[in-house]
Nucleic acid binder design. Structure first.
Lengths: 219, 219
DNA sequence: GTCTATATCGAGATAGAC
DNA sequence: GTCTATCTCGATATAGAC
């Protein structure tokens, strides 16, 4: 086999893997691990059923690959918060990123949510090790800021639980938001308003001043 | 058949129905609709499998009964907010009730969450009708309070999305909270802290003063 | 590497004895 | 009303042709 041909095959392989992962994310988010069928994933990916099981040994293996994919996306998008940052800017930035992820990758968010909801059988270890360490690191920064009087002493770990909950609800409970707002689909304006409202709650909750005309007179 | 005997049979029937509903709630919350098996529900209820299908025509019917049960619990526990109430007290009371529901009925919360997550195939109509109307009513009260200068003009419907998200995360994402806090199970102190933290965010977010020594000097 | 045909199995639902 | 035995079906996974 020529080098050119080998490279072409590798490209096809990569493309197929990505198509399968993308389709699987959608189907798992709508049907759950048990409810999803390889047939439906194959249809979504535009490939015959048997090819799915050629690339991934079993439905379980495919599911783990999807979850790993999502965790990588989360970790690569959300870096660490540095003590040098301005608390107000850092919190707003984090909220903004999380809301954007909910808008851009709602299926990923819902697959993750369903996994945790059902007891995190696959991702439990990650939560107890990497995620716990990440939160502990950020919490130390927040405590430092509190000691320096740069923000109120809100319990930092619970603050993260609440920010995650608020930002992810626009992906995970999207149909409920749509139903209550009377919309067929959420618009950019809805996410912008979500971002502002969450930002206001978080900043004021931490004793920081939201942007804009609401800043009180120092006099 | 004597009257006494008929009454006894009715009692057994009621007891069995309740045992099945309770067991089903737990199994559905752990496995999802598709993942749950009638066998496991029967084992949980201490009844033979066939009896489940004697009381409920099918797994789907049982699932709908569980969902209806949960909605009834929500509606009966959380009444309407009246314009006569004090905004601060009303919001704190609502947050407290929701956190208590997450603590007392985590399985119910998770079944509901999984239903909405998967697109609300069963409960969609309820969300678009009864729930929407309920939120619209409460939103009108909040807007009135804002006009009267009794609270900041936070968008009320989003405020509900955020309160729901924050309070339910302690049930729905319980394993994640446990993992990050390094606990085997959540304690009363954890729920109390959750309640305080959510209360602080919501009150300050609405321009209301949290309780206690943090009240600023008016001077 | 790709796809068709099929073995296998688990689980929902039912028939019918008690 | 209750329970055992069984039917039936849908979906995973595999065997093997191409």
């Amino acid at each position: 086999m020529t080098r050119a041909r080998a490279r072409k095959q590798a490209e096809i392989r990569q493309a197929n893997l990505q198509r399968i992962l993308d389709a699987a994310e959608v189907v798992f988010s709508r049907r759950g691990l048990q409810g999803a069928t390889i047939d439906e994933i194959a249809a979504g990916a535009g490939l015959p059923k048997a090819n799915i099981l050629y690339y991934f040994r079993s439905k379980q293996h495919l599911y783990r690959a999807v979850i790993d994919n999502i965790v990588q996306l989360w970790l690569s998008t959300l870096g660490d918060i540095s003590p040098d940052h301005d608390p107000r800017e850092a919190l707003l930035h984090y909220v903004r990123l999380k809301v954007r992820l909910s808008k851009e990758r709602p299926h990923a968010s819902r697959v993750f949510a369903a996994e945790v909801l059902s007891g995190a059988p696959v991702i439990g270890r990650f939560l107890r090790t990497d995620l716990k360490r990440w939160v502990d690191r950020q919490a130390a920064v927040f405590r430092q800021w509190s000691r320096q009087g740069r923000m109120e002493p809100i319990e930092p770990r619970h603050l993260f639980f609440l920010i995650w909950a608020m930002t992810q609800t626009y992906a995970d409970f999207e149909v409920q938001v749509q139903a209550v707002l009377g919309r067929r689909t959420l618009r950019e304006a809805d996410y912008a308003r979500a971002e502002r409202t969450i930002g206001a709650l978080v900043l004021r909750g931490c004793g920081l001043v939201p942007r804009g005309p609401r800043r009180p007179n120092k006099s």
